[in-house]
Amino acid sequence: MSIQDELKSAIKAALPDLSCVIGWGAGPEPLRAAPLFIRGEADLQNFSAGFLSVNNPALYLPALKGSKVGVVAKGCDARSVGQLATETLIIREEVHVIGYPCEGVIDVDKVAAALAGVCEPGEVGALREDGDNVALDTPKGEVRLAKKDIAADKCGRCIFPNAENADVFVGIRRAPTVVEDAYADIAAFEARGTEELKAFWEKEMSRCIRCYACRNACPLCVCRDHCIAASREPHWIGQTDDVPDKLFFQVIHAVHLSGRCTGCGECERACPLGIPVLKLKRALSRRVENLFGYKAGIATGTPPLLTFNIEESTIKERDW
């Protein structure tokens, strides 16, 4: 039985006890899948999981708290589920996690770059998976691309490809892409120096259209209508399209995710302008990992910023 069929039978077996199972189905175009809410067996025919399963289904869980829900989860999605449960934003027992070995997911921006001069990603007629490659039907004929060249950046540093906290695991666990995420990307970014990075963010944030897709796609951004970015009193952010206002929203998002962000990368993926906003969150995740050894969504127990030690062995305070 293929992974798809095994997943379908796992969903079918779980459905009677659940109000729905969240997975992925056909999206608006061949390169994009969309979240699929499976409420009956009839919906299963639209289900598929694999290279196009980009969206993080954990996003919908806090709003569904109180009912029993299933999610089909990649490794990164399962981390979001774990972190939401740690923070009691969901009740873990209410969520039925169906895991499978994730082989990485597509980054449509990379496909667009690879197809430059051939066609727009929206013009691709069909996508066929063929082992480690994909074949795309374009108006100018078939284009073959290696999956690893068009996979999301996060997949290249994935240490948990198998949903670690799955209630049901389908398929054979695969080895992680890397053993440890050393945050080499953040180190290299930081090495560019503060002056260059200030100019970098000025340029990037000047393109921001304040659509807040980054916030809406984030599974751990749970304040929704009570986001302080929308508050008038205190007035954290003005309504201008100036860089400081737009940048400060990213600062709020990053600070509110410190010690919570699982690095699923949905903020950056959802950004219609391709602004690399995940970098700010990863910088704080690295800090939390280095200081408190805490990997959000994997570690259990009280999150590090909600507790303390009287003597902090890893914090060296400045000697005046």
Binding site: V251, L291, L305
Partner: peptide
């Protein structure tokens, strides 16, 4: 215990400044 929480928060915050382009 307020300052214990502050110590952790502020120490974490220091990690954000360099990537943001602030010394």
């Amino acid at each position: 215990e307020g300052n214990y929480y502050a110590r952790r928060r502020l120490e974490v915050l220091k990690g954000l400044l360099p990537v943001l382009g602030i010394d």
